[in-house]
Design a protein around this nucleic acid. Sequence first.
DNA 1: ATAGCATATGACTACCCAGTCACATCGGAG
DNA 2: CTCCGATGTGACTGGGTAGTCATATGCTAT
Lengths: 218, 218
Amino acid sequence: MPRATFFNLPADKRQRIIEVALEEFAERPYDQASISRVVSRLGIAKGSLYQYFDGKRELFTWLVEEAGRKKLEAVSATPPPTGADLYARLRWLYAQGLLFIAASPRWARVALRSVEPSLDPEISRLRASSEAAAQAFLREQLARGQEEGSVRGDLSLELVVPLVHGLLSEGLMRAFLARAGVTDPLDPAAQSLGREDALAVVDAALSLLERGLRRGAP
Amino acid sequence: MPRATFFNLPADKRQRIIEVALEEFAERPYDQASISRVVSRLGIAKGSLYQYFDGKRELFTWLVEEAGRKKLEAVSATPPPTGADLYARLRWLYAQGLLFIAASPRWARVALRSVEPSLDPEISRLRASSEAAAQAFLREQLARGQEEGSVRGDLSLELVVPLVHGLLSEGLMRAFLARAGVTDPLDPAAQSLGREDALAVVDAALSLLERGLRRGAP
DNA sequence: ATAGCATATGACTACCCAGTCACATCGGAG
DNA sequence: CTCCGATGTGACTGGGTAGTCATATGCTAT
């Protein structure tokens, strides 16, 4: 979505623009992020930024797409477990997700911004489609699980999908960050979070999901 | 938190001010809610509103407190089940919560606004304390459950509390609203949600929580 | 009737924002 | 050396915001 001009820029300048814009859109929700602040931090004229991107929306959506690409790349770095059941697959997947947050908190934060509400109608559409995609993915996984027999059939997916989504998105994130005594991935204290934290949290979450809160072992 | 002047107002005028302010703060997050819009919708001068409330913060925090009172009142209307175990207690509690959302979506929305982030430091403190209170409450419930033997002891509450919070806050809400094909409690289509929906969703959530996703019956 | 207090007003200050555009500068091709 | 397209600029437009305050009006008690 950037204009051609943006890609003609010297790599270091382009990189700096990305970094500053990323920081702005990571720290504030779309409606409160400010192009004026970005250009003033960069020390360039506002008109220049408008040569690189058609507007605030384009800059944001490009950052979100870029964040998605980086996340996909990071998650694909480790190969998924083959032949494993639903719970093992989800364990692997969400562990990768948490590690991405720990490794690239600003990119992860921007990716999360894409499911936040906004007053801008176009951004709202982006939000709706991101949210729908996430739930559709989870639904597919759980449907596969039902076929495998690893997911009980007495609860409709219409109900289960959003519930599990709450557990594995907001819940998992909160549990992960709580390990560092923090509620925001951008908090400097969150840097102390590592692989062990991610695995501990994901193990607990999936054990809870699979077996429930009453009994550990079946 | 309102000034004395506010309570001296004729009841109908006061009521109308509450309604319009409620609508504004229900529809938009704190930072984007606008005092200017409130007064213009009310058709009164901005100075007048500042005679009733010291500022935007005071108006918002008062609405949040008021929402809390109304929610408590609504929840207390039905007596809690006595002698029931953790899951039955939570089932009752969260069903009441969903019914409050269905009955008073704007008040419920404002209550939820209190756990949204804001750039205003004072509002951020309110957010932190609301969030902490919610988790502390859940922690107490789960600790009681562990004593009763209805909650497995192999998972630390530090991990379980935020996970369950994700399931029973965001997850439950999403599942409830999804029944009306909606993602926002203020959406007019959400008015079709009733007691049966609340009970169905809460039953699914608590069954999932208690027994897990793999098997229904123990 | 008048004094004095409570209430109502809206123009005003001092900020912030996205986006535009006429103009300036640069750098390479001819 | 000159031209021209690409790049850079920042003042400007038109909009929004929270909060203030001198002034005006209503209302009540003497």
